[in-house]
Design a protein around this nucleic acid. Structure first.
Length: 361
DNA sequence: AAAGCGTGGGC
DNA sequence: TGCCCAAGCTT
């Protein structure tokens, strides 16, 4: 038993001190982001919601151009609701997690149908919308409507875990972090407070190398006092990623078109365009076996090299087989011939663009 | 309730 | 290079 007195530690942070320091910091360091209202401006709930959906598991830098294109093309939720789903998917292509785009479209239509085109200002009503979970409902309520909601995203999880030195690993610690985060949320300026907490996590309370010397909460932070800030929050170990393999078929017609299909609406890359391919499985494919998955009979030519791509839960290695077909070739059921110079406007996810680049080079 | 679901950048 | 990470949601 160690009888030495424990090192000095800050008292448990209080809502008043933390919120006050964070808001004062935010007033000096507020970032100008395309979806963020300036000081004194009224936020547009549509833009707040759109940005929050895009920012799910996605960096600010990646979202920027997508947000600009979406709001230029669809300036209001009613405009987005009136768009065909495939146009939304094509505009979303490359951003990933495509269920977000399908839910985005469904949500826009729900806001028009259930709420007359105006986003609800209550967390519970927001939570009932497609693609809106606990985080997004709280974030929109706070940021768009200045309601005293307490969003908990990865940034705030990290800030709170360090502030209170919560050692339990995620995701198990989440209920406790949510409880602690709620105790900090002020009744004054809750929207600015939420953005301040997220900005702090994004720019100061960084995962690997927190800039504690720049942090307005350094004096309140128990993990800092204990010298363990860099190691919090703890996380459960991740499952390993298996490798799956397949063969993709690039059918090129003499009139400069290639054959694309639409993927099923649910599951991986749901609703997006694809090159026809074999299944993606652990075992590699013998040539004769892969040929059975070709979309049409042709003189298929195996191109050198492989296209590699990594998804959230598996690595993928695809061979590319190419065939040249006469301009009069009909498209097989469920597929269509798309002009090569029109591919930019298609709902092609990144892995499919890699295949096309490989096969058309 | 654990697993499925994308992508690009940083180290 | 391989792993980690990013303003999570759905089933």
């Amino acid at each position: 038993m160690d009888s030495r007195p424990p090192p000095p530690q800050p008292d448990s942070p209080t809502a008043e001190t933390v919120a006050g320091r964070l808001l004062a910091w935010y007033d000096r360091h507020r970032r100008r982001l395309p979806w963020r209202a300036g000081p004194g401006e009224t936020p547009d709930p549509y833009r707040v919601w759109l940005s929050e959906i895009m920012l799910q598991q996605t960096t600010v830098a990646t979202v920027g151009p997508y947000f600009e294109r979406f709001t230029a093309r669809w300036p209001t939720v009613a405009a987005l609701a009136a768009a065909p789903l495939d146009a939304v998917l094509a505009e979303w292509a490359g951003l990933g997690y495509y269920a977000r785009a399908r839910n985005l479209h469904a949500c826009a239509r729900a806001v028009v149908e259930r709420h007359g085109g105006a986003f609800p200002d209550e967390e519970a009503a927001l939570l009932a919308l497609p693609g809106v979970g606990a985080y997004t409902a709280a974030a929109v309520a706070a940021i768009a409507f200045d309601r005293p909601a307490s969003p908990l995203d990865g940034n705030i999880e990290r800030v709170v875990a360090r502030l209170f030195a919560v050692a339990e690993p995620l995701p198990g610690a989440k209920p406790e972090l949510r409880r602690l985060a709620a105790t900090l949320t002020p009744s004054a300026r809750p929207g600015d407070y939420a953005q301040a907490a997220m900005d702090l996590g994004a720019t100061v309370c960084l995962p690997a190398k927190p800039k504690c010397l720049l942090c307005p909460l350094e004096a309140d932070c128990r993990a800092r006092a204990l010298g363990i800030a860099e190691r919090l929050p703890a996380k459960a170990p991740k499952a390993e990623r298996p490798t799956r393999r397949g063969v993709a078929f690039l059918a090129r017609r003499a009139d400069g078109r290639v054959l694309l299909r639409r993927r099923p609406d649910k599951g991986l890359l749901g609703g997006m365009a694809e090159l026809p391919s074999t299944d993606w499985r652990t075992e590699s494919w013998a040539e004769a076996e892969a040929l059975g998955s070709a979309p049409l009979p042709a003189a298929w030519d195996a191109l050198p090299g492989l296209v590699r791509h990594t998804f959230t839960h598996f690595h993928l290695e695809l061979g590319v087989w190419r065939a040249e077909l006469p301009a009069a070739t009909d498209s097989p059921a469920g597929a269509r011939w798309v002009p090569i110079d029109g591919l930019a406007g298609e709902a092609l996810p990144t892995v499919m663009r890699k295949l096309l680049r490989h096969g058309l080079a």
